[in-house]
Nucleic acid binder design. Structure first.
Length: 493
RNA sequence: CGGGGUGUAGCGUAGCCCGGUAUCGCGCCACAUUUGGGAUGUGGAGGUCGUAGGUUCGAAUCCUGCCACCCCGACCA
């Protein structure tokens, strides 16, 4: 393994691919398009899950689990939904294998063809709504607020670790409500939770917005999203929340008796974030030395590396290190003491930098003498000597972790702000997209035709109509037709 | 799925045009000296050259099929 990582400035996607592999986050598997999420990568995902799960439960949702397989007939019940997913579904056609007669191995038993083929879920609206039909009879059964953590399969042509894989992990919330307003409020609430999670935990600023008709989820009346800006100037959709109207209720005949004695279709929402967030996290903060993790999601927040000659020194240092470790753990900070003597300190420094551990404590003989430790920050690569008698260690480290969390958010925020450009002419649109990238805030006439045409010409799409869009009359950057406000265009992942 | 490229030890590669059983670096193992930013030396282990056929006395090398991966398009969270 060569030492350095490729440079972002030279080959961004190579940098990303190498970083994912070298930081032990994930690797390609024996199965095309599917990845193995390695223990270190998975522990970051677990931290994300834990926070999101807590937030879902705090807002009244409970977890459940629905089947991986969906009868083919279910998928076709909602017309636009099936159209949206048909091209990327894996299909189970048989249920048995047998030994080949020529001894060449196992073959699919042609006798064991399924009556009705099963689709490996690309998303679960259909199975879930077919179940909700039985769960919902009265307004008293509403709202129904369910989430599931699951894997889904979308047979993608081109895959990239975390960003787009044939199988990925996600959570999908599926709720049912008595009124349109309540379902819309739920859609907005969950979007806000995603935005809060992204900003507070991932330290990644996002734009909250609404998808255009072209980009909307198949089967939804309205799709809200959070969009993030990556370091190469491309946008990444980090989460979506859909208002499903009564589309699935009608498709699966889910009605409820109202308080007034009427019978009405329920209103639905669905919302999800996936392991794609891992890709967003990596691309939002990391640098040419490796991963940079926000303390709130780092599996290891602090690593202690001893610098020593001989067992006597190591023993003395270990004693100090363990003392510090106990104090930090008591304060809820996750610490690893790396006293392996199979690797030298310099090697460990580079290794933990690659893996994005936010803080490193170095303790050597000089420190023991002086009652100090060396503190090195991953985010800005600065070091300081800390006098242990000046302040409680857990307080010092706690403050530093908070500061790092804030600091990487601010850095990402400033970067994102710098990458939003208001453009007012087609010429400016093209030049900016070409030379600077990022979000282009531009007037749009509201038509799908214009959106398609712009995509065809520049590969940029409308990432969203920001929820905080200012009313401002102008003319469409492409067609010159009147427009009521600016939308965000960008090239996207 | 279209166009281009690649596949040789755990990883990265040379060799392929011009056929003769495989090069180098990292990593791994042992020992010694080292340890405040990826240590050094000496010795050692490890390869059905993606896979299945074909041509040939002989194939990593030439030919054909298949598979996987990468880049560029169409599709997508």
């Amino acid at each position: 393994m060569s030492k350095g990582l490729p440079k972002r400035s030279e080959d961004y996607s190579l940098w990303y691919n190498e970083l994912v592999k070298r930081a032990d986050l994930a690797e390609n598997s024996a199965v095309r398009g599917c990845m193995v999420i390695k223990p270190y990568g998975y522990s970051i995902w677990e931290k994300m899950q834990a926070e999101l799960d807590r937030m879902f439960k705090e807002t009244g949702h409970t977890n459940a689990y629905f089947p991986l397989f969906i009868p083919k007939s279910f998928l076709s019940k909602e017309a636009s939904h099936v159209e949206g997913f048909a091209k990327e579904c894996a299909v189970v056609t048989h249920y048995r294998l047998k030994n080949a007669e020529d001894g060449s191995g196992v073959i699919v038993d042609p006798e064991a063809k399924l009556e009705e083929e099963l689709i490996v879920r690309p998303t679960s609206e259909t199975v879930i709504w077919s179940t909700y039909k039985n769960w919902i009879q009265s307004y008293r059964d509403l709202p129904l607020l369910v989430n599931q953590w699951a894997n889904v399969v979308r047979w993608e042509m081109r895959t990239r670790l975390f960003l787009r894989t044939a199988e990925f992990l996600w959570q999908e919330g599926h709720t049912a409500h008595a009124t349109k307003e309540e379902a819309q409020a739920e859609t907005a609430q969950m979007l806000n939770i995603y935005a809060q999670f992204a900003e507070e935990f991932m330290a990644m600023p996002v734009v909250k917005g609404r998808k255009t008709e072209n980009e909307r989820f198949a089967g939804a009346d309205d799709t809200l999203c959070i969009e993030a800006m990556m370091q190469d100037g491309k946008a990444l959709q980090a989460g979506t929340s859909h208002f499903l109207g009564q589309n699935f209720a009608k498709a699966f005949d889910v009605k409820f008796a109202t308080k007034e004695g009427g019978l009405e279709y329920v209103w639905g929402t669905s919302w999800g974030v996936s392991t794609r967030l891992m890709g967003a996290l990596i691309m939002a903060h990391s640098d040419d030395n490796g991963l940079v993790l926000p303390p709130k999601l780092a599996p290891i927040q602090v690593v202690i590396v001893p610098i020593y000659k001989g067992d006597d020194q190591l023993n003395a240092i270990s004693e100090k290190a363990k003392e510090i470790m106990v104090a930090l753990r008591k304060a809820g900070i996750s610490v690893k003491y790396d006293d392996r003597d199979t690797h030298k300190p310099g090697w460990k420094f580079a290794e933990y930098e690659l893996k994005g551990v936010p803080l490193r404590i170095g303790i050597g003989p000089r420190d023991l003498e002086n009652g100090t430790i060396e503190l090195a920050r991953r985010d800005n690569l600065t070091k300081e000597t800390f006098d242990l008698s000046s302040q409680a260690i857990e307080e010092k480290i706690g403050n530093l972790l908070t500061e790092i969390q804030d600091s990487i958010y601010k850095k990402a925020f400033d970067f994102r702000e710098e990458k939003i450009t208001e453009v007012n002419s087609w010429d400016e649109f093209q030049t900016t997209l070409e030379n600077k990238g990022g979000f282009l805030s531009a007037h749009w006439d509201g038509s799908s035709e214009t959106e398609d045409k712009i995509k065809e010409l520049t590969k940029a799409t409308i990432r969203c109509i920001p929820l905080d869009q200012k009313e401002e009359s102008g003319t469409c950057v492409f067609s010159g037709k009147p427009s009521k406000g600016r939308v965000l265009f960008a090239k996207a992942y």
